[in-house]
Design a binder for these strands. Structure first.
Length: 337
DNA sequence: CGTATGTGAATTTCCAAGGG
DNA sequence: CCCTTGGAAATTCACATACG
């Protein structure tokens, strides 16, 4: 408010006031192409083509606002202005307050897309089809019973690694922030954790063994060990979300952090390959008996006839992406041992 | 009656905004 | 940075239908 007052004092033409953006919220105005609602719309972010999108508050659907991706101008209405709120609050309290011009309408231009500096994304390999078992149904509505198999080797491996992280060992590890080795046990233990905390002389930061680990700052500490057996099971995120009383997004983020960590622990990727929770199944490359080519084949459920059920036939159906024809393969029955 | 495949519905994931 | 929300999109599956 004070800065806006100062600017208004020296700038009667209001050429500069509009450049103050801090604390100003805006929304587009217009007509919904789906339900003809007219009025204030919701911001819908950017579409894949770079165009700004709007959401209809009435029918909740979204659309792209301007025709061009770059330089297009969109009229918006200022819905919130911190400075004006401060003025109103002061006036209500009976204090003096400056008269500030309100920027009712504004024009929002879509900035030219700048080439984004890529940060080092964690290099988690795309899962290849060998990770998944096509003898099993891929989804819950399949006629075949679905058995969820836990990979005990992964669970055991993670359990031991986690207990190593949570150990009371006071030998200073390498700094997780700068990878420096000049670290020592901190004489001033942090109150927020019971773990031994360390101090790095290189970057002067404090840390514990859990810093920058998948379970660091995990709000749901109770579900950490219960979660491990789920990682190796090929199940939808929603199952795990229901089990732990959270949303699929939370589970997805957690799976991602564990996959990155597993690759650090075992760069060969053997353990990371065992993670299956919530991963999309890649279409396998199979020899098509129709076009005789090796092509990716989409899973198409299980083969069935009028007389024989999918269970008795025991054949998985695929559809070749090259020639679009169907073919099936016998599934391997689990051997009873 | 078996086979091939088009298609609607169910299931699951993606995505961006927004709150803390 | 963590998590929630809610609609849209993608994927998967079995039913429907035509044909031999």
């Amino acid at each position: 408010m004070r800065f806006r007052e100062l600017i208004a004092h020296h700038d009667p033409d209001a050429r500069w006031a509009s450049r103050v953006l801090l604390g100003v919220k805006y929304r587009p105005e217009g007509t919904c192409p789906h339900c003809d609602f007219h009025g204030q719309l919701l911001n819908g972010g950017f579409g894949a083509d770079g165009r700004r999108r709007a959401l209809c508050p009435h029918c909740k659907r979204g659309w792209s606002m301007a025709r061009d991706a770059e330089g297009a101008e969109i009229t918006v209405r200022v819905v919130k202005d911190l400075a004006l709120t401060a003025v109103a609050r002061r006036k209500r309290a009976g204090h003096d307050a400056p008269e500030l011009a309100s920027a009712d309408h504004a024009v929002l231009s879509v900035p030219p897309r700048t080439t984004v500096q890529l940060v080092d994304a964690p290099a988690v390999p795309a899962p290849h089809s060998g990770r998944f078992d096509f003898n099993q149904p891929l989804r819950a509505n399949s006629p075949l019973p679905r058995r969820h198999v836990e990979d005990l080797r992964l669970t055991t491996f993670l359990t031991s690694e986690i207990s190593r992280v949570f150990s009371d060992n006071t030998d200073p590890p390498r700094c997780p922030h700068c990878a420096g080795i000049d670290t020592r046990l901190s004489s001033r233990p942090r109150t927020s954790t019971t773990l031994p905390s360390f101090h790095c002389r290189g970057c002067t930061r404090y840390f514990t063994r859990a810093t920058r680990m998948p379970m660091a700052n995990m709000l749901r500490k109770d579900m950490l060990f219960a979660f491990l057996p789920w990682l190796s099971q090929h199940r939808p995120l929603t199952h795990a979300a229901a089990e732990f009383g959270t949303s699929p997004e939370v589970i997805k983020a957690r799976v991602g952090r564990f996959r990155v960590w597993l690759l650090e622990l075992d760069p060969s990727g053997q353990y990371e390959q065992r993670v299956k929770l919530g991963l999309k199944v890649p279409w396998p490359v199979l020899p098509c008996p129709h076009c005789l080519a090796e092509a990716t084949a989409r899973p198409h459920g299980f083969k069935r006839t009028r007389t024989q059920s999918a269970l008795t036939l025991g054949r998985r159906l695929f559809r070749c992406t090259g020639c679009n024809h169907f073919f099936d393969m016998p599934i391997e029955r689990p051997r009873k041992t």
